[in-house]
Amino acid sequence: MHEIIAAQADLADRTIKNSWPAWLDILQSSTGLFLALFMWGHMAFVASILLGETAMWTVTKFFEGYFIFGKSHPGLVSCVVAFVALVFVAHALLAMRKFPANYRQCRAILCHAKAMRHEDSTLWIWQVCTGFLLFFFVSAHLYQMFVWPQNIGPYASSDRVWSDGLWPFYLTMLLAVELHGGIGLYRLALKWGWPNAPRGVLRTLKWGLTAFFLVLGLATLAAYMKIGFEHGGHYGERYMPDWAAAENTSQGDGQ
């Protein structure tokens, strides 16, 4: 109780060492690192559509536990989504502390970056703007995946992208996520001094990775749009490889 009274009197720091700032900084960085690495992994799984419908179906079913339990459990995906959502909310809360909070701060940082023509300062503005966009886009995406995890698959996802008209949503999110994550990882390296490489090297690496994942993401989105367009007449139908369909049929006969 005395800590609350001391804090109200602005004397909290005189009573005990306040470890919160250190923890919050570490948490902001570690949640950002987790989300950026998750984003790359997620992109790799989603991009499996470029290898064909069966490849993407296999990845989807793997995460639904099909190859372990012999049956799909989309709820497993919901669990992963819930965990990612928790990390995302924590990261958003922690990162918000750094956002400009009022008109004076907004004007100060915008004029500063514009007049300085300093790349890392300008990149930070991009990081804030894309982060702000992601509050809405990622929240909507996570909610959708949490509630309807069964709607992930070569045809289901393609129908969502094309027939449900969500491709502009995914395109915007792709651009925002790749820019935000790439800049964020670069800034993490500068913040903590690891990897201890020259800034020019880190910046080149950052742009290289951002370009790679943007190209991969755009190609992936185009693939879903193409499949969705071609599959438009069979909206709602789910993809299943022939061997799995045959296996399901034989199991059904056996019963």
């Binding site: 250190a22 300093h118 300062s121």
Partner: peptide, 8 residues
């Protein structure tokens, strides 16, 4: 911990 590593 307030430093945002803009490094200007």
């Amino acid at each position: 911990f307030g430093c945002m590593s803009l490094l200007a």
